[in-house]
Design a binder for these strands. Structure first.
Length: 257
DNA sequence: ATGACCCGATCTTCGGGA
């Protein structure tokens, strides 16, 4: 079972690239972030035409997450996180596919930091950790996939010294990610490739992709019972070089279940 | 040190992204 995550940075602008990537790599499940489209304008039919059914949580202009499955309808479990009734941003969606619970997340960026946006990021992270702990207590195998907007370690940035004041790399953000993993989650890519340079994002400026000036901020976390099922993982980094690409590349894992 | 590039808004310019 192949599960991927891809921050598309606008699903309408990205549709040709998204469809090509799905057809060429054929993931069984694809978690998408930054749809940037209202609920009613999600391009459901274009995905159906190539064999993908979807559940999604849209929002005008910003955010938005979706879970796609090949040849079947993802069974939605829930949307949004508990703990803040005033939070109306579309950043979290859960669905079951083939007995695996998939959590698709778009964690807040948090810049500028410090400030209210950084506070929101850390509060959101706390609410997410609460949900993650609940999921660990359930029976289902779980994959938490998405754009975490966290650079976990110095190994995960092209020039980490440039990011020390940034919300993606500040100690609070890294500590939150560590706390989450300490619940029992496995960072799939890092687990298979402990010493490799792995990036999932290259910004649009300064020819970052051409220079491989990237960050690793998109992650797939596995619940304990899935760790032994992990057989391979990677980043489809060539997609970042396609015409009209997102600034993120797709990240995927293959589970033997 | 700065600004560089994209997105979706409905504005020919802006906020947000990371």
């Amino acid at each position: 079972m192949k599960i991927a995550t891809y921050n598309v940075n606008g699903i309408h602008a990205r549709l040709p690239v998204l469809l090509r990537w799905l057809e060429e790599t054929a993931p069984d499940v694809a978690c998408l972030q930054e749809l940037k489209t209202p609920q009613e304008k999600f391009p459901e039919q274009a995905l159906l035409d190539i064999g993908y059914q979807a559940v999604w949580h849209g929002q005008k202009s910003w955010n938005g997450v979706a879970i796609l499955a090949k040849g079947q309808k993802p069974e939605e479990v829930g949307r949004g996180l508990a703990g803040d009734p005033e939070d109306d941003q579309s950043r979290y969606l859960e669905a079951m596919v083939n007995g695996v619970l998939i959590g698709c997340l778009y964690l807040p960026n948090g810049n500028p930091a410090p400030g209210p946006k950084f506070d929101y990021k850390l509060r959101w992270f706390d609410r997410f950790k609460t949900r993650a702990k609940e999921l660990l207590a359930s029976d289902a195998p779980v994959v938490l996939a998405g754009d975490y907007n966290v650079i976990p370690t110095e190994q995960d940035a092209y020039k980490p010294e440039r990011w020390v004041e940034d919300a993606l790399f500040r100690p609070e953000s890294r500590a939150a990610f560590e706390d989450l993993k300490d619940q029992g989650w496995t960072d799939a890519l890092r687990h298979l490739y402990p010493a490799e340079t792995i990036y999932t994002f290259w910004d649009y400026f300064r020819n970052a992709y051409g220079r491989n000036a990237g960050l690793r901020i998109d992650h797939l976390l596995l619940s304990p019972k899935l760790t032994n099922s992990l057989v391979s993982a990677g980043v489809d980094r060539e997609v970042r070089g396609w015409e009209k690409s997102s600034d993120h590349g797709p990240v995927w894992i293959e589970l033997n279940i």
